[in-house]
Simulated scan of single mutants.
Amino acid sequence: MLVIDVYSSSTLDVIEDRLCRGGPAYYAQLALHAIGAADARVRLALPTCIDAEWYLDADWCPGSVHAEGYECATVFAVKEGHGGRRLRVLREPDPLEPDPRGDAALVSPVLGELEPAEAARLLTHYRLAIVDVQGFGRVNGGGEVEAFSRGVLAFLEQPAEPGGFAAVKLSLEDVAGAAWAAEAVRLHRHAPYSALLVTAGPRGALAVLGDGSALAVRPRRVEAVSTGAGDMLSVLTLYGLWKGWDLEDAVAGAAAAVACILLERSRRGRVEEGACKASFMGRRGVSVEKLPGGCSSADCIVMAFEQG
């Protein structure tokens, strides 16, 4: 049994007056549920008073808003628009103490639950880990979530000694147009990480390896809300690596499954157990391109998605 420790606050989203489960741990468990991974489970690695069984249930939006009852969850008001998602903080819990026990880790803070140095130290406990640095780049600006690049760079500047495969994940929206993105890519080249993963929701992912070589992984295009896509791709990549796949196959399988999950959720409002297993195992609808000359700059990353 693969136990994946998720380092993130339990997160709830208020979307159009509905209370919806959200955050990295929920989306990680949803992804495993969608591919029927009976040999893997998510563990909340930051203490919480929320009922873990309720929180990790596959049903996305179970009811109306009663956010005042979830004192130990981060609660966001979420608004989707043409300019992307906007988040407003309704509740932010106190800092939490990490509790490493599992076999693999997804370190994905949503709003300052972990200090960069603390996140780097956690990697020594795991032979498989992905760190999503987006949460290090957020700050609660009086209730509105604002971008703050210094936190991302602070993590990449930390000395780290991963216990095995460890990747850093950014999203394309973090890279495109961000003044600090070039410095982040430069720092990654000199850090002890196996890969840099850049995700773009339904558009797939780019994996930049330690030697500078790069793989563009492009799934079939789906028109659907992409919330949670990055966390789902991360956890399914970890699962594929644990199964013995190489990184190319792991990311391709993950991207295929994520496209399936987003489509199922859009059509049916929920995802049945095992509904996307065939997509994951067969890498359905995914193309993988090895970029000639690699990809070692922020401009190259953006162009790789534009050309796809």
Rank of each mutant, 00 (worst) to 15 (best):
G164Q: 11
G23T: 05
H125R: 15
L236C: 10
R284A: 13
L87T: 06
M1T: 08
D5T: 09
G240W: 02
E223T: 13
L236T: 03
A200P: 04
V89Q: 14
Q29I: 08
G285S: 02
E144V: 13
F76Q: 10
Y126I: 05
S8D: 12
A160E: 05
G244C: 08
F136Y: 12
G102M: 08
R91E: 06
L30V: 12
R138F: 03
R221F: 04
S296M: 14
S296T: 08
G23N: 11
L2F: 06
A45W: 00
P24H: 02
A205C: 06
P116H: 02
S266H: 15
R121N: 14
L2M: 13
L96S: 15
F155I: 07
F165N: 02
V258P: 01
G177E: 09
V6H: 07
V42Y: 08
A298W: 05
D17R: 03
V152W: 00
L172E: 04
R121W: 09
A154W: 13
S297V: 13
L206W: 03
Q134E: 15
R220C: 14
G282S: 15
L197M: 14
A254I: 05
C260S: 08
G240F: 10
G204P: 01
L90S: 14
E118D: 09
L87M: 06
